[in-house]
Amino acid sequence: MSDAEREHVVSLLNKAVGRGMISLDEFTARTDTALAAVTRADLNAVLLDLPGMVNNELAHARTELKNTMSTTTRKGHWVVPRELVIRNTLGTTNLDFTAADVPPIVNVDLDVSLGTVKLLLPAGSSVNADGVEITAGELKDKVHNSVGNPHFQLKGSVRGGTVVIKRKR
């Protein structure tokens, strides 16, 4: 969850107040819940009963995953944004896209220092990692420049780290 996602939902709640869908007291309670949300399910829960206010825009937004000396994992069903920024320092980021809701093109911007990023792509997908600059690290791309859908476009820098890209068979 990023602060931008939380702020986006608060802006949708603000629209709901303007349309008379919720009261100011309810807006305050829902805003508190949205700002404290840890998962997308928590975040979307404040919008579910508001017609036309379901937060579908999150799938089209930019999400930043920050990780310092820890592990970040996304697997199972999750909504993948069009732009995904991975900032990883001395940690591990594991992203399994095989059961995720993935847009046709995903731009992945890497900023990795002494960390590991593992990407498991869906069957039939493609990837281009030509825009990744490796310094004292390693890129293990088992799908390199393939043609398919969805397409993952990687760029950024890896300093003393490892990026592993695999595709589910």
Rank of each mutant, 00 (worst) to 15 (best):
E26S: 01
F27W: 06
T28C: 11
T28Q: 10
T28D: 15
A29N: 15
A29G: 12
R30A: 03
T31L: 02
D32N: 15
D32A: 11
D32S: 15
D32G: 12
T33E: 13
T33M: 10
A34G: 06
A34K: 00
L35D: 11
L35F: 03
L35C: 05
A36V: 00
A36S: 09
A37Q: 03
V38T: 15
R40Y: 03
R40S: 12
A41T: 09
A41P: 04
D42V: 05
L43C: 00
L43E: 08
L43H: 04
N44G: 01
A45T: 07
A45Y: 02
V46M: 03
V46D: 01
L47Q: 08
L47N: 06
L48T: 13
L50S: 12
L50F: 04
L50T: 12
L50A: 06
P51G: 02
G52Q: 04
M53F: 13
M53C: 07
M53K: 07
V54W: 14
N55P: 08
N55V: 13
E57R: 12
E57N: 07
L58K: 05
L58E: 06
A59L: 14
H60V: 06
H60G: 04
A61R: 14
A61Y: 10
T63H: 10
T63R: 14
L65P: 01
L65A: 09
L65Q: 07
T68C: 08
M69T: 09
M69L: 09
S70I: 07
S70P: 01
T71H: 08
T71K: 12
T72Q: 10
T72V: 10
T73E: 06
R74C: 04
K75S: 14
G76Q: 14
G76V: 07
G76I: 13
H77M: 09
W78I: 04
W78Y: 04
V79Q: 13
V80E: 14
P81T: 10
E83M: 06
L84M: 09
L84E: 02
V85K: 03
V85P: 04
I86Q: 01
I86G: 01
I86K: 00
R87K: 14
N88Q: 11
T89C: 10
T89W: 03
T89Y: 14
L90N: 13
L90Q: 15
G91A: 05
G91W: 02
T92F: 06
T93Y: 00
N94E: 14
N94R: 03
L95Y: 04
D96M: 06
D96V: 03
F97G: 12
T98E: 13
T98H: 04
A100C: 15
D101K: 05
D101A: 11
V102T: 12
P103I: 02
P103R: 06
P103E: 08
P104S: 02
I105A: 10
I105W: 09
I105C: 15
I105N: 15
V106W: 00
N107W: 11
D109A: 01
D109Y: 07
D109F: 00
L110P: 05
V112M: 01
V112K: 00
V112W: 01
L114M: 03
L114Y: 02
